[in-house]
């Protein structure tokens, strides 16, 4: 009997490890992460992770998840297979979002209440430095070439360009009200930023740190006040940019060359953050108010599925 039970358990463990792809979603109100099989379209399990989990990232070798558990005032390191905590990083108070450097060695975390960015060395679990920025830093992104870490401050409405080597601010760019999320293109040449209160997406040239394009999002039948863009993701080939539009319940599909909005895809309520599948064939969205994740097929830009995951899905990452 016992042997049978163990082998059944082993089988279950094997089958769960054998999934082609795994998606991890932080659940802000459930204090947990949801594990989803996006191919089968099923919720595999939910694992407790700590209080008020929000920002999430995965290490480049896919072995570790980094999860900002805001009310525990730490960023937890979680084994992506066992979902057990294996360490904690000194993020400073109330961490929400953070950026992993391309070499995988450092995390830059926004400290919204203290108006600082904390630089953390992952190997030694030490906070190296705190960099003062504007009021309420939130969105933060590292350029793939390792040169920049850019922090967006929601109340100051600026992008602070932090030199990733010297850890000092080199430049500041004023953008539209309440900048939320930002993302570099794969060649590190352009930075895309969403402004929640203006309903705009701004594209900047990383060389000059100047704005080259401002895209105003608008949907027929939805008032401008409701269009509040948050998450942004650009594909590797820089053909398309995708923008989560918050309470407008849509994802904007933008041609990354012409900056024209091609279409708006209806997803769940208060769509918040976005993540590509590792092969970039699908895009996953967290829908905060409808408690689900939508899957968008990127070959034909269609929403194929939505999967209920738990209360207040916030961040999302995927693993092959």
């Amino acid at each position: 009997m016992n042997v049978w039970m163990i082998s059944a358990g082993l089988l279950a463990a094997l089958s769960w490890a054998a999934h082609a792809e795994t998606v991890y979603v932080t659940l802000e109100k459930d204090n947990a992460i949801a594990v989803v099989d996006p191919i089968a379209g099923t919720l595999l399990k939910t694992a407790p992770v700590g209080q008020r989990p929000r920002g999430i990232a995965i290490s480049h070798d896919y072995k570790y998840l980094f999860v900002a558990t805001s009310d525990d005032n730490t960023i937890k390191v979680i084994d992506s297979e066992t979902l057990l905590e294996i360490g904690r990083l000194p993020s400073g108070e109330d961490p929400e979002t953070f950026a992993l450097t391309p070499d995988g060695k450092r995390l830059f975390a926004s400290n919204e209440d203290d108006n600082t960015v904390t630089v953390i060395d992952i190997a030694t679990k030490q906070a190296l430095q705190q960099i003062p920025v504007g009021v309420e830093p939130e969105g933060i992104a590292a350029s793939p070439d390792g040169q920049w870490v850019v922090s967006a401050t929601e109340a100051t409405n600026m992008l602070h360009w932090i030199d990733a080597k010297t850890l000092t601010i080199s430049d500041n760019t004023l953008v539209d009200p309440r900048p939320r999320a930002l993302s570099f293109t794969s060649d590190s040449q352009f930075l895309w930023v969403t402004s929640e209160m203006a309903g705009t997406v701004t594209v900047l040239d990383a060389k000059t740190r100047q704005i080259i394009k401002k895209i105003k999002l608008s949907v027929q039948g939805v008032t401008d006040d409701t269009i509040q863009p948050v998450g942004v993701a650009i594909d590797k080939d820089q053909r398309w940019a995708y923008v989560a539009m918050g309470p407008a319940n849509r994802v904007a599909v933008i041609n990354a060359k012409t900056f024209e909005v091609e279409k708006y895809l209806l997803v769940g309520q208060r769509v918040w953050n976005l993540a590509f599948s590792p092969d970039q064939k699908r895009l996953y969205t967290t829908n905060g108010l409808s408690n689900d994740v939508s899957i968008i097929d990127l070959d034909n830009h269609k929403v194929t599925k939505s999967i209920g995951v738990g209360r207040y899905p916030w961040g999302v990452v995927s693993k092959p």
């Binding site: 109340a155 409405n157 539209d176 009200p177 309440r178 209160m197 203006a198 006040d225 509040q228």
Partner: peptide, 10 residues
């Protein structure tokens, strides 16, 4: 003019 006032709308 669009001021962020923590109430979801400018």
């Amino acid at each position: 003019f669009a001021l962020q006032g923590y109430k979801g709308k400018p």
